[in-house]
Write a protein that binds this DNA or RNA. Structure first.
Lengths: 121, 121
DNA sequence: TGTTGACCTGGAGTGCGCTCCAGGTGTCAT
DNA sequence: ATGACACCTGGAGCGCACTCCAGGTCAACA
């Protein structure tokens, strides 16, 4: 039960590139990652948990800058829980709106497909 | 019952900027738009119809390059109907996959929110 | 007739989110 | 001890989809 994950393992696990993992750390979306004596990064459980959430948030369109603000709240400690909830709820609302838009657009695209079909064979 | 729409009207109607409308024309997402004697563009019904679809496709993440391929099929005439349907269906499938992903991510984000709530007040 | 506002052109610039690169170090199997 | 391979750094580069700019034209109204 190794407590640490290598950069390669993490990259595989979440589908981020090594460059992206370093980039996220550099700009503060990830905290400063622990290092082995060799200088190699070793990600730990809390990093994994954060990356899992980052994956969700990025996939749903949260901008990097907002992600960083979220990460800063996490680093600032437990008494920012309310702010974090607010931020996530805000994102959830935007996501809901976006989903609604996508469904409406899909409907219209499907109508267009039906229309093209009605013309051809 | 004016048959033509000014650039400003079209921009308002679809939420594209004037620059974007010109850009789309330049790169072939829109056909060469008809001009008034003054040189000003005048969009007509077929352009409006196309823009309506472009709005749907862009909003649902179709890349500009694919959009241009679609526009080329439209310009190539009626016997490309089958290809157009194929392209749109392909997009519809990708959209379905994307929606599924978004719903799954949303679920996890909501769980995270609940978790934060269970900690705080 | 003068001014305002919408529009024109070709081309350069922007913001986002990575992605690549050169040159170097660490680890491990043969 | 020699490769092969994973990883390190700082900094430059890239692709996408616009967006902005300078310098000009046109139409309409006061």
């Amino acid at each position: 039960m190794s407590i640490f994950y290598s950069p390669g393992e993490v990259a595989d696990k979440f589908g981020f590139s090594l460059d992206t993992l370093r980039y996220y750390e550099r700009i503060g979306v990830l905290p400063r990652i622990d290092r082995a004596p060799s200088g190699h990064r070793r990600y730990q459980a809390s990093d994994i948990e954060m990356l899992d959430l980052i994956r969700c948030l990025r996939d749903t369109g949260m901008p990097i800058d907002t992600l960083r603000r979220f990460a800063e709240l996490v680093r600032a400690g437990d008494d920012t829980a309310r702010d974090r909830v607010a931020l996530l709820e805000d994102h959830d609302n935007q996501l809901a709106a976006h989903l609604e838009l996508l469904l409406e657009r899909r409907d219209r695209i499907r109508h267009k497909i039906d229309y093209y079909r009605s013309l051809g064979s």
